[in-house]
Design a binder for these strands. Structure first.
Lengths: 207, 207
DNA sequence: AAAGTAAGTAAGTAATTACTTACTTGCATG
DNA sequence: CATGCAAGTAAGTAATTACTTACTTACTTT
């Protein structure tokens, strides 16, 4: 067995994510980590402290938004819509494939519940969220500078973008594909709306 | 004392919303409802059954999206963007003012957690969500028919719209206004993006 | 070989929790 | 007046939970 501490942290992430903080028992976490329950308490002192350490151990929600950006950041000849389409589908792919990512998102989701009661958790959650919004925000800023995007508040654009993915990944977690249908198609439709808006083009010219 | 049963249901909604299903204790709910704990069990048999009844008792998440629509549906001369701006701000206002609405949303939020474990809860949650998405969807459909909106998938538009409001109301619940800043301004920026998209107008003409 | 360290086993504690049983009180209706 | 019903009081049960104590085992370092 490798690093006991890390194994406990990973197990805690999974159990917190699937059972919620209150629902997760230290016994269950220890079992999942293949250690004796007493070992968990020796290493982390209390359940509350364990949560804190898991928080520190898992800083980003999507395994790395930066990595997802890299896939097209070299090819400068792509138009913005195509880039976002690629980004969106990569996010969707990461959601499907990486189990750890799914757990991280559900963990983050649990933090919303816990954050309303514990200010320290809210603080940690806040920096989690910033970590996703910031690179996106900067990306949009750059697009505006490069003249590929009209002048909108880049943070609002990032929040709109993230809203969609957080919400729909939640829906998919609970309902599978029954609520939203095919992932890629749905994302294409979102990107279409996000980039072009819902108004008719002729109506736009008036402004 | 009025209707004991209803008082318990209301109390349960509040406690489930703020503590989560697992975190809510029957004792606390009874206390909140000003009844003896035993009365709760006499009326509802079990905690699980109480959840079911609360579910039935609170069907819509926003007190009524229909009401919010009414505020402009008679004035047909408004353009779509203005209408959506009004709708968005009405939603924001309802969020701020109506405590019961806030509790309902947090309750719905809790259902996401619980729904992953209990298929019946997921089912109820699904119809909750449909109840918000459907009228919006139909509204967009109508706008498309009236030529005020370009042809996009109306359900995807509704989901995009709802995503934003669910996610940001969650953020506001946890962080207050510190994360997003002024409510109305932020919503204006969202509506701007949602209606007009993020691309430059000249880029749109190429398509 | 001795000593330290990381882990396990086993048992237990005090508190909490969903839920029950048995009996009582107050009020309305026949 | 008597009967019935809705609600309360009080006490308790069995299970679970976070966490502790005391002792043991196995492996590594000196």
């Amino acid at each position: 067995m490798e690093d006991t501490e890390q194994r406990i942290l990973d197990a805690a992430l999974r159990i917190f994510a699937s059972e919620g903080y209150t629902g997760a028992t230290t016994r269950r976490i220890a079992e999942e980590a293949n250690v004796a329950e007493v070992t968990l308490f020796r290493k982390f002192k209390s359940k509350e402290n364990l949560l804190r350490e898991v928080l520190i151990n898992n800083r980003s929600v999507f395994s790395s938004l930066d990595d997802l950006f890299k896939s097209f950041q070299k090819e400068t000849d792509l138009d913005l819509e195509t880039e976002l389409r690629i980004l969106g589908k990569n996010i969707a792919k990461a959601m499907r494939d990486k189990k750890k990512d799914s757990k991280r998102r559900m963990f983050m989701f649990m933090l919303f519940e816990e954050g309303r009661r514990r200010p320290e958790v809210a603080g940690a959650l806040s920096s989690f969220l910033q970590m996703n919004i910031k690179p996106l925000s900067e990306y949009f800023e750059l697009q505006i500078k490069n003249g590929k995007m009209r002048t909108v508040n880049s943070r609002s654009a990032a929040i709109t973008f993230v809203s969609y993915f957080v919400y729909t990944s939640l829906l998919r977690e609970v309902f599978g594909d029954s609520f939203l249908g095919d992932n890629d198609e749905e994302i294409e439709r979102f990107i279409d709306i996000f980039t072009k808006g819902i108004l008719k083009v002729e109506d736009l010219k008036n402004r």
